[in-house]
């Protein structure tokens, strides 16, 4: 197998808070190969977004990276490279799509300007040529009458159009890796499908790798080939997408799958995972999911489970892997 495009090794990001140190991302490792789509799944507060931001060193101020963490892209460590080298990577080789296209776009600059800026920053093209390219790109992501729309400001566009602008901005230089943080969450359901369709089309066109951060398993099923499930700052399961839906290995994954409403369950109460994600200042000892887990026994309180290899691409962080007889039915 070829070496991965992106290789994240033991990523740890913490904050100092009044309640003590918060280990928001706590030892996350994974890889993304060229052209592959990997989904990062989990509830709010489990560290998905912070993981994504850390890949481009865009964490909020006050975040601290552990010195042992490495994020290798094309063989270079993003976490230790000089600012200049990092800047030439951002937006050119690795691009990001953010969740809220209203606040993620600058309200006082035209959308054409904001798309063209990526070109101006990374290429030697003149302002006029960059603008032409921006308009072409806006047309490519499905914005009708792109030349006129490019002159408009974000508040003059609909949510779906704004997200298309965001995507145009991310993809204009054909990056090798695109990180999309909840790209459809803020949109209407009908628009969500269009945006996913667009991302899929763009992926086929450019052969980019996609790291998709989402809490929506429907999006995962449609887009991803591999899935990472995060809980409380850790990866609790890594699995090919078919296996995740047919044979989930972690009780948390099972809970997420059970919480997806289907036609059969529509008349009953929706199933949920009891409780909430604990705050990052206060991860429980042992297994972090045990307080919400139906199968937990005393070993779960004392030993933190390791990430155990189940199959060629399937890893699970749960004691049930070694002691399946403990499973309660």
């Amino acid at each position: 197998m070829t070496s991965p495009l992106l290789s994240v090794h033991d990523l740890r990001v913490s904050f100092f808070t009044e309640a003590g140190p918060a280990r928001a991302v706590d030892g996350v490792s994974f890889t993304v190969h060229a052209g592959e789509t990997v989904a990062l799944v989990g509830e709010s507060g489990c560290g998905k977004t912070l993981t994504a931001l850390s890949l481009l060193r865009l964490m909020p101020t006050g975040a601290r990276l552990a010195p042992t963490s490495r994020v290798e892209f094309d063989g270079a460590d993003i976490l230790t490279m000089p600012e200049r080298a990092l800047r030439s990577l951002r937006g050119d080789r690795i691009a990001m799509i953010f969740q809220e296209p209203m606040t993620a776009l600058n309200p006082v600059l035209t959308v054409g300007d904001q798309v063209a800026e990526v070109v101006r920053v990374h290429t030697a093209l003149s302002g006029r040529d960059a603008w032409t390219r921006a308009v072409d790109m806006l047309a490519l992501v499905g914005i009708p009458d792109a030349a006129a729309r490019a002159q408009q400001y974000p508040h003059e566009l609909s949510g779906g159009m704004r997200q298309r602008v965001m995507i145009a901005m991310a993809l204009i230089l054909e990056p090798a890796l695109v990180i999309a943080d909840e790209p459809t969450t803020a949109l209407d359901v009908t628009i969500q499908a269009q945006i996913l369709e667009l991302l899929r089309a763009m992926r086929e066109r450019s052969g980019m790798a996609l790291l998709l951060i989402t809490h929506d398993l429907g999006v995962v099923a449609e887009m991803a080939s591999r899935v990472l499930v995060m809980y409380a700052g850790e990866v609790v399961e890594e699995s090919p997408v078919e296996l995740l839906f047919s044979a989930p290995g972690h009780p948390y994954t099972e809970g997420l799958l059970a919480a997806v409403p289907t036609l059969d369950t529509s008349r009953e109460r929706l199933r949920t995972i009891p409780g909430t994600v604990p705050p990052p200042t206060d991860w429980p000892a042992g297994c972090r999911f045990r307080e919400r887990c139906a199968h937990a026994w005393d070993r779960c309180a004392s030993d933190a489970p390791p990430l155990v290899q189940l199959g060629p691409a399937h890893r699970v962080r749960c004691h049930l892997v070694q002691e399946p007889e403990r499973r309660r039915t």
């Binding site: 800047r87 990001m96 809220e100 800026e117």
Partner: peptide, 15 residues
Amino acid sequence: PFVRTARAKGVAERG
């Protein structure tokens, strides 16, 4: 958030 977007685009701190 648009400040972060600008950084993600590779814009220098001045920009």
